[in-house]
Design a protein around this nucleic acid. Structure first.
Lengths: 340, 340
DNA sequence: CTGAAAGCGCTAACAG
DNA sequence: CTGTTAGCGCTTTCAG
């Protein structure tokens, strides 16, 4: 079933059929209606490839996700999808699986498939990859901090500041020996969180202790392992700041296994405010990150770029606000009123 | 940059270039190497659309997900993605958002984009939609039970049996007044779970009580609301069977708010065994569903269909095994050895 | 307002 | 082993 069938059926030329498909206003109402009816009846849909061959637009964006089972990333992805769907775009979902090689392979696929734009969530791609994209004239938006951030469009939060705020909260709650467990990835963001952690200690003239800083896989299991080690230290910390809620969940599990009470014996602080952080026992104090919004803003920026509303040359950085979400896992009775 | 540029550069015809791209063995090594080098240098990639126009294959499958933020669905999706990626396929991610209309719109998009096949997770599509797909000759695999299951390729577990097993476990643990909270969706699967619940009661000659069966949104919030109602009953149940772990989490939260101890005052049973079910307090007894495997088997079946390995005519149903995962939330001290 | 025809970039049959 | 050429299905000038 192709455009010629329709044309023959209607007794017109293919050009006319093509016109009712693309510029219906340039076709006489009568012929148009007739053709439309035939199209309807035949359930004819123009061939996607033939169309793309002429327009060179796919109505598709690439969406790179570092880890599809991590709900933090999926909430961002959902924000992107929401916007894309409203624009009648579909997203090609790429699960980079924390693997730079896989991410690059996917990127090549996306370029090959001529996507109209790409959203990269917490990407580990490098300068060369971005150059490639620029050559191909494919607009890109990064969500989450990036090492080569300069010259790229980025939407993120201020991780340094957020981490500093988190640690300060712990300090204000009376904890002094504060440890931090952070994930290997996303590398850059977590690097910033570590900086924030150190800054908070410095400002209080507290020593930075190497043994209180641990890096693990960014997962529940990672947190579990990290906390076990910390708890076994000669002088264990009074509080643990985790670079993600998932790590914090693992931390809490490990501490329970060690028969330590949270927050009485040891406080725990998370990062992200995923839905479950309000359901673990005790409820987790954490940094609330506007995940969905990050996705929405990222996608909007991308579409501005695609539609030429935004000058691609000038790199734009959008910083969204975070908040501290105080619940039970850090103690601090006075502020309990703010509790959710 | 197109195939003609490369041909001219290499001093050969476009056919030869096309050959090194598609049937390199039919090209003299010398010319081949020369052309390959030029392709490399020019970073030439064959035009996706032109290619599709000839092959009518996209290397893309559609993946319909009912709710992208539900990790149950994402684990299945991951299974699909794993297989697809190995086949060098990419999945077009469609977030149906529990909305039949949105799902249908996405389906139309997928057909328009000429995907090579579609995996539908817990779909709410109907007979007409499937007929459309058949007409277009697009193979489809359903993951999860479906009302029009007959004549379609399905991968799922036996929800009736699983639910019956779950309720029996509750009964064996000494609970008699067992309530069930199930989600509106996935409709068919949850319908089967309700059947299993009733069967278990019947087999013990226990009465089915209308007020003990509640349907809510399939979410933490839904479970919370449902459990509140149950707890306020004149004769509240001694145990609650939730049709999903997420509902169970909400149930547990509500019971805690009512100052009820789990499992001493009331037992809770989940369904799915998502990662978090092992981290809530108390750890949740639940039905372990092989989520990732469902996705893998579904995708494999789809690719067999795409590659013509499998006769599309004959509907195939693959039933995967589930297990009961006994933890703490239901009491039952004797079997505690099986605890994870 | 409509039709004829060129061309988008690539593949494959056919001929050499 | 390689080149010529006819499509794939559609859009879009250019004439009428």
């Amino acid at each position: 079933m192709n455009i010629r069938h329709i044309a023959k059926e209607a007794g017109v030329s293919v050009a006319t059929v093509s016109r009712v498909l693309n510029h219906p206003e340039h076709v006489a109402p009568k012929t148009r209606e007739k053709i439309e009816k035939i199209i309807e009846e035949a359930e004819y849909t123009p061939n996607w490839f033939a169309r793309g061959l002429n327009f060179n637009k796919t109505g598709t964006i690439g969406l790179m996700i570092p880890h599809i089972l991590n709900s933090v990333h999926m909430e961002i992805a959902k924000g992107v999808e929401d916007v894309a769907h409203r624009k009648e775009y579909i997203a090609l979902m790429c699960n980079a699986e924390r693997d730079a090689a896989k991410e690059r392979r996917y990127l090549e696929q996306l370029i090959k498939r001529r996507v109209d734009g790409i959203v990269l969530i917490c990407s580990s791609l490098g300068e060369k990859d971005f150059k490639m994209l620029e050559e191909q004239n494919i607009p890109v938006v990064l969500i989450g901090d990036h090492k080569d951030g300069l010259g790229l469009h980025v939407v993120s939060i201020d991780c340094r500041q957020a981490a500093e705020k988190a640690v300060s909260h712990l300090l204000e709650a009376g904890h002094e020996r504060i440890a931090m467990i952070y994930g290997f990835e996303p590398e850059v963001e977590n690097g910033h969180k570590v900086e924030g952690y150190k800054t908070a200690l410095e400002k209080r003239n507290l020593p930075f202790r190497e043994e209180y800083l641990r890096t693990v896989e960014n997962s529940i299991e990672g947190g579990y392992l990290g906390a076990k080690k910390l708890a076994e230290l000669e002088e264990p910390p009074q509080a643990i700041f985790a670079s993600s809620d998932y790590i914090a969940f693992g931390v809490m599990d490990a501490l329970k296994d060690k028969n330590l009470k949270i927050p009485e014996d040891i406080a725990v602080m998370g990062f992200d405010n995923v839905r479950m952080s309000n359901l673990v026992e005790p409820k987790l104090t954490t940094i609330e990150v506007p995940l969905h919004k990050l996705g929405v803003y990222g996608a909007r920026l991308l579409f501005d770029l695609i539609e030429g509303e935004e000058d691609g040359k000038e790199a734009k950085t959008i910083l969204l606000q975070h908040k501290i979400k105080i619940r039970k896992s850090c103690g601090h009775k006075e502020r309990i009123g703010e509790m959710f």
